[in-house]
C-alpha cells in the first residue's frame, strides 16, 4: 500500500464518495420496500397454517438466516441466470445492480416476515372476532384492524433490520456494483491509500445510520401517538 497516512485525503474523498450515495440509497429503498411486500406474503402461510407452503417458507427463512449475505449474493449472481435460463431467458449480461436488489429483497423479506409474524400474533384475537361480528370480511379485518395494530409493534424491529441492511449494502461491490463502496475501491486503486478512503466511508455510513436512527425514532413516536403514557412505558 501507499507510503504514509494522509489525513487530508479523508476529507477530500468524502464529496467524491457522496456522489455515489444515491446508488446505495436506491439499493436500500428498493430492497426494503419490495422486502416489506414479499415479507407480508411470506408470513401468511405460517399465520393461516397453510400446509406445504408453510414448510417451504420455514425452510426458506431458515436458509436465509443460516447463510451469510455474501454467499447469498454469489448464489443469486451465479444461480439466477441458470434458473431463468431454464425458461430460455438469457440474463447473464444483466446489470449487477438488479442481482443486488434481488438478493437484498429476498434477504430482507425473510427477516421482515418473522417480524410481522411476531407482531401479528401479538394482536389480541378478540379484535378479529369483533371485526367479524360487525360484518367485516377476512381481508378487511386484516388490512383495517389487525395490520395497522401489528405494524406499530413491528416498526422498531423493521427499523433495526433496515439499518443493518444499509450496512450490508457495503458488500454489493463484491459482484461489481458501482455504489459508494465500489467508488471507494476505485479511489483506493487510484490513490494507493486504503485506510484514508475506508475511514471516510466509515464516517459517511455512520452519519447516515445516525440520521436514519433519528428518523425512525421520530416515526415511531408518530405511530404511537394514540397510546396513553402508561402503555408507552411498557
Amino acid at each position: 500500500m501507499g507510503s504514509s497516512f494522509e489525513p487530508s485525503l479523508i476529507v477530500e474523498s468524502i464529496p467524491k464518495l457522496l456522489s455515489y450515495l444515491h446508488i446505495t440509497i436506491e439499493i436500500l429503498a428498493l430492497s426494503v420496500g419490495l422486502g416489506l411486500l414479499l415479507g407480508i406474503l411470506i408470513a401468511m402461510p405460517r399465520l393461516y397454517h397453510i400446509p406445504i407452503l408453510k414448510e417451504i417458507v420455514t425452510v426458506y427463512i431458515s436458509f436465509i438466516r443460516g447463510t451469510p449475505i455474501l454467499i447469498q449474493l454469489f448464489l443469486v449472481f451465479y444461480g439466477l441466470p441458470v434458473v431463468v435460463g431454464l425458461f430460455g431467458i438469457d440474463i447473464t449480461r444483466m446489470d449487477p445492480f438488479y442481482f443486488v436488489i434481488v438478493t437484498y429483497t429476498l434477504s430482507n423479506a425473510a427477516a421482515f416476515s418473522e417480524i410481522f409474524r411476531g407482531a401479528i400474533t401479538s394482536v389480541d384475537y378478540g379484535q378479529t372476532e369483533a371485526a367479524y361480528s360487525i360484518g367485516l370480511t377476512p381481508l378487511q379485518n386484516f388490512y383495517r384492524i389487525v395490520f395497522p395494530q401489528a405494524f406499530r409493534v413491528a416498526f422498531p424491529n423493521i427499523a433495526n433490520a433496515s439499518i443493518s441492511s444499509l450496512k450490508d449494502t457495503s458488500l454489493a461491490f463484491s459482484i461489481g456494483v458501482m455504489d459508494m463502496m465500489g467508488r471507494g475501491e476505485t479511489l483506493i486503486s487510484a490513490t494507493m491509500h486504503a485506510v484514508e478512503i475506508y475511514i471516510s466511508l466509515a464516517i459517511i455510513y455512520y452519519v447516515i445510520v445516525l440520521i436514519f436512527e433519528r428518523l425512525f425514532k421520530w416515526i415511531e413516536r408518530y405511530l404511537n401517538r394514540y397510546l396513553v403514557k402508561d402503555e408507552l412505558s411498557l
Binding site: V195, Y198, V209, E213
Partner: peptide, 14 residues
C-alpha cells in the same frame, strides 16, 4: 453504526 467490512479493512491496512 458502521459496516463490519470497514472495521476489517481499516485494521488490516491501518
Amino acid at each position: 453504526g458502521t459496516p463490519v467490512i470497514m472495521h476489517i479493512m481499516i485494521i488490516y491496512f491501518g
